[in-house]
């Protein structure tokens, strides 16, 4: 997957977890939590969905890398390059 495809994939997951949020104006370089009402359970859901959909494991110590769309893509890119 390319960097852009990963961002789209994460957005798709967020749209399922937080169906009431308007994701059209989301800034990719700003923390998700500053733009959306996401709590730590929502981030756990994102991790579970990433595992389910793309067989990628995000260890607890790396949760910080999921802060913004950009940082998600940078972090996940090497893990998803063959998917």
């Amino acid at each position: 997957m390319t960097n852009d495809q990963i961002k789209q994939a994460v957005l798709q997951i967020i749209s399922v977890i937080a169906p009431d949020e308007d994701l059209s104006r989301l800034k990719s370089d700003v923390a998700l939590r500053e733009q959306l009402e996401l709590d730590s359970m929502d981030f756990l859901d994102i991790v579970m969905e990433l595992r389910k959909r793309y067989k990628v494991e995000v260890p607890e110590a790396d949760y910080g890398h999921l802060a913004s769309l950009d940082s998600c893509a940078t972090y996940l890119e090497p893990k998803l390059k063959d998917k």
Binding site: M41, L44, D45, V47, M48, R51, K52, K55, E57
Partner: peptide, 16 residues
Amino acid sequence: INYGVIMANEVDKYLR
């Protein structure tokens, strides 16, 4: 309920 979700995540991780 939330703890059930958190631990289901751990079970899923284990089973995979």
